[in-house]
Simulated scan of single mutants.
Amino acid sequence: MKLGLQLGYWGAGPIDNAPELIAAAEEAGFDAVFTAESWGSDAYTPLAWWGAATERVKLGTAVAQLSARPPTSLAMHALTIDHLSGGRHIIGLGVSGPQVVEGWYGQPFGKPLARTREYVRVVRDVLAREDRVTNDGVHYPLPYPADAAGSTGLGKPLKPITHPLRSDIPIWLGAEGPKNVAQTAEIADGWLAIFYSLGLAPQYEEWLAEGFARPGARRTRDDFEVAASAQVVITDDVAAAIDRYRPSTALYVGGMGAKEKNFHAELYRRMGYGAAVDEIGALFLAGRKEEALAAVPDEMVRETMIVGTADEVRAQIKQWEAAGVSMLMVTARDVDTIRQLATLV
């Protein structure tokens, strides 16, 4: 089992002690650190700024949003930071959700599977630098069609001026549903599992197996990364830890996504919490957030956590490893916790 430090996206301001956290993670033997983006801070700038002080730890985005930049632009970011870090970059991508894609980026959300497949293909073509990059797909056509609205017809195929340090920078995809996970196994090098549940592990493996079995699949299960986000809390007071993370569970289930399409809510339904999801969502939509928090069952919070004494946490980590997780992505926010976690794997 490997450890990754998930720094995530910023709230009102930067993470004050991020440099100390990253230094502690590298010293403690963490495999990677990750940044994210929503509709505030971006994923690449903090990764480059903080990563400049590192020497060994891998630098990943978990996730960079597809709609935030065209695939050629993402590939430029990736090849640049990969050069600057000496080949330590991990490209983590995700589609986000319709509220962000259409409300913030002003782009259509439809056909996320097809968009992801096309996006990844263009990124790989840029990094391969074997020829000028063209794409006849409908989502990211290159060059821009001469007969399309606003076109001058002067676009021409190009290939990157800068030679990528690695043509095979690993691409990990954030995915939650069965079709997304299967496609991730087919076209990517790793899966970023935002809410991993041991109870669903057999289903996850079925979805992954479907992707690996497809013609032309890039990886096999043996060389494919499963990086699961998890709140790992070492404590004698499990109830207090659950209360601390109850608001986050309520927010993702009830407040992150539209009523008609919330991928996080759908995942918790698969875990067996359909009735709770309905109640939490209804309360959030009614503006009754405190009641929504109270409606989150303890076991629903515990489902995606690793919590208990040091010995109990060590045993639970072994369970996650046996279930197929190769990296735990933790959100530790103090140096002591980072050092303690490193002793448990």
Rank of each mutant, 00 (worst) to 15 (best):
G4E: 13
G4P: 13
Q6N: 15
Q6W: 15
Q6D: 15
Q6A: 15
G8D: 10
Y9Q: 10
W10N: 12
P14L: 10
N17G: 12
P19E: 03
A32W: 10
A36M: 09
G40N: 13
A48Y: 00
G51V: 02
R56D: 08
V57R: 08
A78P: 10
A78T: 12
L79R: 02
T80Y: 01
T80E: 01
S85W: 06
V95M: 10
P98A: 05
V101W: 02
E102I: 04
L113A: 04
A114V: 00
R117F: 01
R117N: 07
R121I: 03
V122F: 00
R124V: 03
A128Q: 08
T134R: 02
Y144R: 00
P145Q: 08
D147S: 09
T152F: 05
G153F: 02
L154N: 06
K159M: 15
S167L: 01
P170W: 07
W172E: 03
W172T: 03
N180P: 00
V181G: 00
V181C: 01
T184N: 02
I187V: 01
S197W: 01
G199H: 06
A201W: 03
E205C: 02
E205R: 07
A217P: 14
R218S: 06
R219F: 01
T220I: 01
R221T: 05
V226E: 00
V226M: 03
A230I: 11
Q231F: 08
V233I: 15
A241D: 05
S248A: 11
K261S: 13
Y268I: 01
R270P: 00
M271S: 07
G274W: 07
G274A: 05
A276Y: 06
A276E: 12
A282Q: 15
G287M: 09
E290N: 15
E291R: 13
A295Y: 13
V296C: 07
D298R: 11
M300S: 13
M300Y: 15
R302K: 06
E303N: 07
T304P: 05
V307T: 09
A310G: 08
R314T: 14
Q319N: 11
Q319M: 06
W320C: 06
E321Q: 13
A322S: 00
M329D: 06
M329N: 09
V330Q: 10
T331K: 12
V335F: 04
Q340H: 12
T343V: 14
L344V: 14
